[in-house]
Structure formats: structure tokens, C-alpha cells
Design a protein around this nucleic acid. Structure first.
Length: 464
RNA sequence: GUCCCCAUCGUCUAGCCUGGUCCAGGACGACGGCCUUUCACGCCGUUAACAGGGGUUCAAAUCCCCUUGGGGACGCCA
């Protein structure tokens, strides 16, 4: 039997970090077994589900390259299917109509709570033999004794007394199915063999297993991934920073860095830290899925991102960079030119936002170059200017701006002749060329800028 | 309140199932150093953990029990 997994988000917001991780794990589980990964949109709650959220989730999954087989299944389009199964349960005496109002049920729960018991619906309509009617719901006749057990793929053996469970609603008074019913019907109907989902669903699992049994269906294997915490160990939320996957794209992260990071959060395979997509697919079953919650660590994500930036082809980064540049007015965005500066930035940038920031001085024309005032004051003192003025003819004479070593040698020769240290010109020259005191190597920078631009910048600096 | 789950460096984790090779390994971070034309990269090193208490055993991070701490679930949300 081939493995079929699925990711089943409810479209009430963007795809967040936790959802992305369970989606990734489900995807990996399927792919590692040569199986199929499906997407199902759980939009039975029409009040809270939106098209924008659906689009946002699909966009984020595409960015992470978590492709689902075929087209997504929308629960909102399958109400007839759910109702036919509810009818089946009703006919078999495994479900019943209930006329209790939400207020009445709330009162029962309140009472139970006050008595120190678990808040539950008390089953008062269970044997009334009620039929359909306005405001009525269908409830599942949960077995009142016995134990429902399953072996959780990540948490191990789990069991719950059926007496802990109450008669859950299957069909709401407005005719819409509830989550637990729809999930079971869909997972069965879609042929899902392995359900990997968030920790918050453990408690639902016994209820769902009871439904599988009532229908006489095979029960899939379940695994519950612990949730992701913020630095304060509380459930990760907006106040901890970016929660949305697409927010990380805006922050200048590469999708493979996020994927690698998410994979290692709650999963490990020996001491390995860097995983290509192929390795992840191959090693996923060999690794361990942890069963305790983990804290999201931006620093480690940054480190991975820096790693993937270094590994990326300059052409690729050149194509991604413009959207991080902000105001691109007057910037030289020629793809080939961008690609030529990127190798100088790759070891220095942790994100594309940082890279764009560092790239700016390369892209600005000389007359628009912004000189840092303090840098000019500190580094372009009279003696330094005199040296630069003397250096100018040397750089004018040099013809090969593809060989930074040659420029360095020429500079060194000039300094040797006057018994000067390299430091005497390094920072002044850097400020002249870049406007700043920190930059990539001087001569590499000159080569990328080209002869005309390099000379123009030195001249402009001399005129400041 | 009731039920369930979790517990190794600050963080992610290896080791735990199949006790000894673990005075606990790797990585991120932090700190220090080297390299060096700046900033980075890179390299080297330091820091730092088996929550606590009882057992079992010749031997426990590993097995058992209790305590503490953390989390989750208890919807006509998913």
C-alpha cells in the first residue's frame, strides 16, 4: 500500500511557521516512501474562512516548494458527502438528533466544572429518538465504556477512557459538518494512510478513531508533532516576531534555509545540520521526531540562511535582489552587473535584506553616491587626500580591471616606494570608492565597479 | 477543575528502546584568539546540560516510583 499523507490547514489566516513544519514533515513522509502528498482546505467554518487565506497558504507552500498532488480538496464543496455519511450513522443507530441549545449545553458544562468534573454534554437526548428539526444537531453516540488506544508515531502508545469523551456534534444546526466528522470522512475518502499533524489534535484522535470504527473503516496511522515555542517558552505567536512563512521571504530568507531550519526543529538525524532536499527525503525516516516542544531560534535560522546564500548561484540571487532594494530609482540593475557584485556580498550577508543594503553603493551612479559624513571626516584628511591624488594616475594607467591582484600589486609598489604601510591608503580609498568604512575587498570592488566608475569616485571624493 | 503529554548546555539536539565505550557528543549563540586593507567569511579554542528526590543494579542520562516545573485538550473552531 502506498503512503498517502496530507496537509489540512483551515484558511483563517496565513501559513504560519508551525503549520509549515507539519506540512513539511507530511510532505517528507510521503516522498520518503515514494508516496503521495495531498492538500485539503478545511473551510467548513464559512464565517472564518477566506479566499485570501487560501491563496496565501497555497502561495507559501509553493514558495517552500511543498507541492501537493493534484488539486486541493475543499471541504466546503463536500457537504453532501458528509451528510450522507451522517445519515448512515443515524440509520445505524450510532448517532442521534439532539435539541439542546448551546446555552443549555454550556450550563451542563458549567455545572460539571463546578462539581470538579470534566465539562461534558450529558447525553440527555441520546435515547429520545428525536428526528430532524430546526436548531437540532446530530451527535455521535460515543461508547460509554472501554478504552480507545492507538500508537502515536511520535508520542508512542496513547490511550483514553471512552468515559472521558462526550457525544460530539457531527452535524451543526446549520447543516454544516463539524471538524471531527469531516476529517474522518475526508481522510478515508482521500485514501490517507498517515496523518501527521499538530500536537493540539491528540485529544481529537480517539474521537476520530471511534468514528472510523463506527464506519467500519481502516484507521490510519497517527503522529502528533509537538508545537513550536517562542523564546519565552510560550506558544509561538505574533509578539515573538514573524509568524507567517511569507514574512520570512520579505525578511530576506531563502526557502531552502527555512525548510532546513524547520526540518531540524523537532527532528534530527545524528549530528548533521545541513540537509539538501534530497537528503531530507532520503534521511527523514532514519531520523528521530522529537516529542517535546522546541523553541524557535532566529539566530540559527540566520546562520542557515547565510550558509545557503553562500551556496547560491549569483545569477539566482541577482534575480531575487531587486525586490529588496526599496527605492530603485537611478540604480543600475543590469542583471549581469548585479551578478558580478554578488560574489563579493555572499560571504557577508545573512539575509537578502542585508545584501541589498550592502549592494547599494555599487548600484548608485557616482554623482548619487552617498558619503558617510563621519567616514569622510575621519578618513579623508589632507594627507590621505594627497595620497589618493597621487594614486589616481596609477589607476588611470592600469588597464586591466579584471585582475584585482594586479591593482593591488600596483598599489603596493607605489606604497613601497614611499615606505608607507598599506593601512595609510586602505581606509581613505575605501571611503572614496564606497562612501563607507566597511566594504568588500578594495580591489575586488574596483574591478566590479570598472575603471571609469572607480576613477570617477576617487575624483569625487577628492572634491568633497 | 478534569484528562493527557513533556523534561540533556541559553537554544536546536545526539545518546535513552537494547543500562557500562558518556567525568555526556555535535550545531547555533556568546566569549577569546588566529587570519587580515575595513567589514565579513574561514580556522582554532573556551563557556555551558542529564530538573529534584528515592529506588533497582556491581554499574543509570539510560529501567521503576514520587515530587517539582512546563505545556496541551476539554466549542454548533479547526
Amino acid at each position: 500500500m502506498t503512503t498517502v499523507t496530507r496537509f489540512a490547514p483551515s484558511p483563517t489566516g496565513y501559513l504560519h511557521i508551525g503549520g509549515a513544519r507539519t506540512a513539511l514533515f507530511s510532505w517528507l513522509l510521503a516522498k520518503s516512501q515514494g508516496g503521495t502528498f495531498l492538500l485539503r482546505v478545511e473551510d467548513t467554518d464559512r464565517e472564518r474562512s477566506t479566499q485570501e487565506a487560501t491563496d496565501a497558504i497555497i502561495e507559501a507552500m509553493a514558495w517552500l516548494d511543498l507541492a501537493a498532488e493534484g488539486t486541493a480538496v475543499f471541504q466546503s464543496e463536500r457537504f453532501d458527502l458528509y451528510n450522507s455519511y451522517i445519515d448512515q450513522l443515524l440509520a445505524a443507530g450510532r448517532a442521534y438528533w439532539c435539541s439542546c441549545t448551546p446555552e443549555e449545553v454550556e450550563a451542563m458544562r458549567e455545572k460539571a466544572r463546578a462539581e470538579g468534573k470534566k465539562p461534558k454534554y450529558d447525553g440527555r437526548c441520546r435515547e429520545l429518538g428525536l428526528g430532524p428539526g430546526a436548531g437540532r444537531v446530530v451527535r455521535f453516540k460515543t461508547p460509554q465504556d472501554g478504552v480507545t488506544a492507538f500508537v502515536d508515531k511520535v508520542k508512542g502508545p496513547t490511550a483514553v477512557q471512552n468515559s472521558e469523551l462526550d457525544d460530539m456534534i457531527l452535524r451543526r444546526s446549520d447543516g454544516a459538518p463539524t471538524y471531527n466528522l469531516a476529517v474522518v470522512v475526508d481522510d478515508h475518502d482521500m485514501g490517507v494512510t498517515h496523518v501527521l499533524r499538530g500536537d493540539d489534535h491528540v485529544a481529537n484522535t480517539p474521537r476520530q478513531i471511534l468514528l472510523y470504527q463506527a464506519f467500519g473503516w481502516d484507521v490510519p496511522s497517527f503522529g502528533h508533532v509537538p508545537m513550536i515555542l517562542g523564546p519565552d517558552k510560550a506558544k509561538l505567536s505574533k509578539r515573538h516576531g514573524a509568524l507567517s512563512v511569507m514574512e520570512y521571504k520579505k525578511l530576506g530568507y531563502l526557502p531552502e534555509a527555512l525548510v532546513n531550519y524547520l526540518a531540524r526543529l523537532g527532528w534530527a538525524c545524528g549530528d548533521q545540520e545541513i540537509f539538501s532536499r534530497e537528503e531530507l527525503v532520503k534521511l527523514f525516516p532514519a531520523g528521530n521526531l522529537g516529542n517535546s516542544p522546541s523553541v524557535f531560534d532566529m539566530k540559527k535560522l540566520e546562520w542557515l540562511n547565510a550558509h545557503y546564500i553562500k551556496e547560491s548561484a549569483p545569477e539566482r540571487l541577482a534575480a531575487l535582489l531587486p525586490e529588496f532594494l526599496g527605492d530603485t530609482d537611478g540604480l543600475n540593475l543590469d542583471p549581469a552587473y548585479l551578478a558580478s557584485i554578488i560574489p563579493l556580498l555572499q560571504p557577508r550577508a545573512k539575509t537578502l535584506v542585508e545584501m541589498a543594503d550592502m549592494a547599494r553603493f555599487f548600484l548608485l551612479p557616482t554623482d548619487k553616491l552617498v558619503y558617510d559624513e563621519k567616514a569622510v571626516a575621519d578618513q579623508l584628511k589632507p594627507e590621505a587626500r594627497a595620497l589618493l591624488a597621487e594614486l589616481l594616475p596609477i589607476y588611470e594607467e592600469a588597464s586591466d580591471y579584471t585582475d584585482h591582484k594586479a591593482l593591488e600589486t600596483a598599489t603596493q609598489a607605489f606604497l613601497d616606494a614611499r615606505e608607507l604601510k598599506f593601512k595609510a591608503v586602505a581606509q581613505p580609498l575605501r571611503v572614496a570608492l564606497t562612501g563607507k568604512t566597511a566594504s568588500p575587498g578594495l580591489f575586488e570592488t574596483m574591478c566590479v565597479l570598472g575603471k571609469a566608475e572607480s576613477l570617477a569616485r576617487i575624483k569625487r571624493a577628492l572634491s568633497l
